[in-house]
Each structure stands twice: as C-alpha cells, then as structure tokens.
C-alpha cells in the first residue's frame, strides 16, 4: 500500500513539479496515471520508490516513510521499469542483466539461478539467455528490462510509458501480462498517455495537470468526459468518440469497451425495430 499525503515537490531550480498531491494506492490495484508531458506524472511515481523525496508532505510505502529509508530497501517492494530499456541494459548477457538486481539485493546464488530462469520463461526470453541484450530488437530489449525487475518479484510494479514505440501486438502482449499480474494480486501502476491502451484495460485512472490531480476514478467515467479530457489535453478514446456522437439518440456516453459498444448498439437497433 502506497499513501501520499499532500506532497509538494520542488526541483533544485525551484520549479514546483507537485503542488499538493494526495493519493492512496491499495494492494492489488491497477492504476493509470495520465496527463500531458510536464503534468508531474513521472515526478509523482518517482516518489513511490524513493528516487525523489517530497519537499513537503509524506509518502508511506507499507507504512514506512520514504524519507526514513533507502531506495534500495524500497525497491524490494516497488519495482520501477523505465521507459527506455537502453537506459539500464549494460550486461554481457541477458541472464546477467536479469541477475543484476538479485545480486544487489544479496540473494543466494541458487535462488538467483531459479529466479532468472523463472523471469526468462515468464517473458518468453529463454532462447536469448546467453545473448547480449544489445543484439536484441527494441521489443525484446523492453522485455529484458521488464524481466530484470520482475525477477525479484516486487509487490508493486511501476511502468513508465510502457507502450511507447510498441506495435499493436506488443501492446496486446503487455496488456495480457498485466492482467496476469492482476490475478496474482500485484499492484500495477502505469504512467501513460496512450488512451486506447487504457481504454482496453478496465482500471482506475488518475488524471494530472500542472502538478495536481484533477480527477481520480474509473476509466470509463474519466475517459468519456470530454470537458475533463480537454482540460488535460487528452483525446477521447475512439469508442468514446462514437458514443459522444450517438448520445443524441439517448444512448449512454460512458462506453469505452468495444464489446459493450456492440451490445448497446445492437440492443438500440432491436428496440428501434420493435417500435
């Protein structure tokens, strides 16, 4: 459980990147933090594993204040996968890359061996075990970066812009992977501006603008509110755009799921025919 209470954060150049943010993330939740570039999304999530400490206010991870502990300790519970895998890959082989964090955390060699095998398998990387991560494709490098964090099995996983530069199939695989994490009751926080991706996952959305939270609720409520989205410079998901137009027929507006969309349209047509 992560609890942020009225946090403010100033960068050394005195820019106030967070202006009083309070947020509680419960165990097992799946949250998307959305907003324009510069809205403070990345600054906020960097507080969850102690990379940044609030200037004012407190952040507690499982009851422990982040100012009273180290990133290395917090990282055991909160795994953070950065946007660009090239910002972390450095080992000679994929296997070493995944073992890096495990060694830092002081796991026993046998445990490390087991964990590496497990993580490779989970992300379909087993065939690349002895390959240099630099020889892999962009999508594969992204998976290695993810595996290198999953290896120590943190309770919470933070993914910064996981869909950037990914094609349709890679996004679909990522979505399925997150769903799998959900079944295991893991907490997943994604920072993203990919509305279509968020619309396809049924989750809680936290909308930020200029260092503040402007909305917090279900994806289907927030992503179908044109005024709110315009305020945060986000576009409506495709399905929501269709239903925004269809609302003149008395159909509901808060639809983002394609299957739900189909049912509603078919029902509307039947009732129209009956009349």
């Amino acid at each position: 459980m992560i609890v942020a209470e009225d946090i403010h954060f100033f960068y050394p150049n005195k820019v106030e990147a967070l202006k009083g943010v309070s947020l509680t993330i419960k165990e097992g939740e799946f949250i998307a933090i959305m907003g324009q570039n510069g809205a403070g999304k990345s600054t906020l999530v960097k507080h969850f594993n102690g990379l940044l400490k609030p200037t004012l206010g407190t952040v507690r991870v499982n009851g422990v204040e982040t100012t009273k502990t180290s990133v290395a300790t917090l990282a055991r519970d909160v795994g953070f996968v950065f946007q660009n895998p090239d910002h972390q890959l450095f080992s000679e082989t994929v296997e070493d890359e995944i073992a890096f964090a495990l060694k830092n955390f002081g796991f026993e060699p046998e445990v490390i061996e087991k964990r590496v095998t497990w993580a490779l398998n989970l992300l379909a990387l087993t065939q690349y075990r002895k390959t240099s991560p630099f020889l892999l494709s962009g999508g594969e490098r992204k998976r290695v970066a993810l595996a290198s964090v999953l290896a120590w099995d943190p309770q919470t996983l933070i993914l910064d812009e996981p869909t950037i530069g990914q094609d349709h199939e890679q996004k679909e695989k990522l979505r399925q992977f997150i769903m799998q994490m959900q079944i295991q009751k893991k907490t997943v926080v994604i920072v993203t501006h990919d509305v279509e991706f968020v619309a396809e996952c049924n989750l809680r959305v936290v909308l930020m603008k200029e260092g503040k939270i402007v909305a917090d609720g279900l994806g289907k409520d927030i992503l179908t509110d044109p005024a709110l989205l315009e305020l945060s410079s986000i576009v409506l998901p495709q399905i929501a755009q269709i239903f925004a137009k269809l609302s003149t027929l008395g159909l509901p507006k808060d639809i983002i799921d394609i299957y739900e969309a189909k049912e509603i349209i078919l029902k509307a047509q039947e009732s129209g025919l009956r009349k």
């Binding site: 990282a75 972390q88 830092n104």
Partner: peptide
C-alpha cells in the same frame, strides 16, 4: 535517468 534506473534495481 540511467542512475535512477539502476538505483531502482538496487544499485547503491
């Protein structure tokens, strides 16, 4: 950013 990414993987 790289330092942050490695710190997040337990590098001290």
């Amino acid at each position: 950013t790289i330092m942050d990414a490695q710190k997040a993987r337990g590098l001290e």
